[in-house]
C-alpha cells in the first residue's frame, strides 16, 4: 500500500477500492450461485445470454432497473423506502476493515473483529423496517421471524468469534491471522462449525430461511419490494455472504497464510481462494438441505449452537492458560 500519499488522497483511494470490491464481489458470488446451483441440481437454467449463460446476471440487472419502483398505499413511506439502504450499508462498513493480506486492509483498526460484528448486527434493523413499513401482514410476520432469528443466532456467532479472539489474544483481525497456526483448525473446529451455521442463519439463507419462506409468508419482508429497491436487498444478501465468508476465512482458516505468502499478492489470492470455498459451502447448503421449521430453528440455536459455543469458549480458555 502506498503510504507516502497525502492522507486525504489515501483515504479517498481506499474508499473507492472498497466500494469497487463491494460492488463486484457479491455479483461474482451471485454468478457462482447461478452456475453451481444449476450444475448441482442438474437443471439447465438460462443459457441464452452469452456463453454458458454468464451474462444472465447483467440481463437481470437491466430488468431490475427498468421495473417500476412501487410503494404500496398502506406502507409507512419513509420507513419502507429507507429500509434497503439500512440493510446494505453495514456490510460496506464491515468490508472496509477485513484484511485481504498483511497490508491489504483499507482500515486497520485495533478492534476490527468487534467492529465487523457490531455493524453487521445493525443490518437486521433494515429487515425489520421492511417488515413493518410494507403494511402487509406477510411482511410483518416475516419481519418478526427475522428479528427473532437474528437475535437468537447473534449470540452463538459472537461467542464463536470471541473464542478465536481469546486464542489469539487480540481483537484485531490482522492480529488474529498473524497469531494463527494450522492446529487451530482442530482446536477451534467446534467454534468454526457454530460460526458457519450461525452465519448462514444471520444471512437468512436455506436451511434457515424461514423469514422469507415462499410457501408460508410469500417472500417475508421483501414481498412488497420491486425494481431497484428489491435488487438492493438482494445485493445486501450477497454482500453479507461475501463478508461472512471473508470473516470465516480470517478467523478460522488463517486468512492470507499459506505457501509463498511472503509475496503480498499470493497472500491475497489465498484469502480469495479460501473465501470462495466458504462461499461455495454456503451455496451447497442451499442446494442440499430443506428449510427447517421455525421452532426447530430456535431450538437449534439455543440447545445446540449456544452450549457448543460456550463449551468451546471454556476449552479455548483452558488451552490459552496451559500454553502460557
Amino acid at each position: 500500500m502506498p503510504s507516502e500519499l497525502p492522507l486525504l488522497v489515501e483515504v479517498a483511494l481506499k474508499a473507492a477500492v472498497v466500494l469497487a470490491v463491494f460492488l463486484t464481489m457479491p455479483l461474482a458470488l451471485g454468478q457462482l450461485e447461478h452456475k453451481v446451483m444449476g450444475h448441482m441440481q442438474g437443471r439447465l437454467g438460462p443459457m441464452e445470454a452469452g456463453p454458458h449463460g454468464i451474462l444472465q446476471l447483467v440481463a437481470d440487472g437491466i430488468k431490475f432497473v427498468q421495473k417500476e419502483d412501487v410503494t404500496p398505499a398502506a406502507a409507512d413511506r419513509p420507513v419502507f423506502r429507507l429500509a434497503p439502504a439500512v440493510a446494505l450499508i453495514p456490510y460496506l462498513v464491515a468490508l472496509a476493515v477485513i484484511p485481504f493480506g498483511a497490508a491489504w486492509v483499507a482500515a486497520d483498526v485495533p478492534g476490527s473483529l468487534l467492529l465487523v460484528l457490531a455493524v453487521t448486527s445493525v443490518g437486521v434493523i433494515g429487515t425489520l423496517m421492511a417488515g413493518w413499513g410494507s403494511g402487509n401482514k406477510y411482511s410483518l410476520l416475516g419481519g418478526m421471524r427475522a428479528g427473532a432469528q437474528l437475535v437468537s443466532y447473534e449470540l452463538p456467532l459472537v461467542i464463536a468469534a470471541a473464542s478465536v479472539a481469546m486464542a489469539a489474544g487480540t481483537l484485531s483481525l490482522t492480529g488474529i491471522v498473524q497469531e494463527w497456526s494450522w492446529w487451530w483448525l482442530l482446536w477451534q473446529a467446534p467454534a468454526a462449525l457454530v460460526f458457519l451455521a450461525a452465519s448462514v442463519a444471520e444471512l437468512q439463507r436455506t436451511p434457515f430461511d424461514a423469514p422469507i419462506a415462499d410457501s408460508e409468508v410469500v417472500f417475508g419482508p421483501l414481498t412488497e419490494y420491486t425494481g431497484l429497491r428489491f435488487a438492493f436487498f438482494l445485493l445486501a444478501e450477497y454482500a453479507g455472504m461475501v463478508v461472512m465468508a471473508l470473516l470465516f476465512t480470517v478467523l478460522f482458516l488463517g486468512g492470507w497464510r499459506g505457501p509463498w505468502d511472503e509475496i503480498a499478492v499470493v497472500g491475497v489470492l489465498w484469502t480469495l481462494l479460501k473465501a470462495a470455498v466458504v462461499g461455495v459451502v454456503f451455496l451447497w447448503l442451499r442446494v442440499a438441505w430443506p428449510r427447517v421449521r421455525e421452532d426447530q430453528l430456535q431450538r437449534f440455536a439455543w440447545l445446540v449452537l449456544l452450549p457448543v459455543a460456550l463449551l468451546q469458549l471454556a476449552v479455548t480458555g483452558v488451552g490459552v492458560v496451559v500454553l502460557q
Partner: peptide
Amino acid sequence: LVALVQLLVYVGAVVVLILVALM
C-alpha cells in the same frame, strides 16, 4: 471499545427486541 459495545448491545440487540415487541 465502548462505542462498538454500544452498537452491538443497544442497536443490535436491545432496539431489535423493542422493534419485535412492537410488531
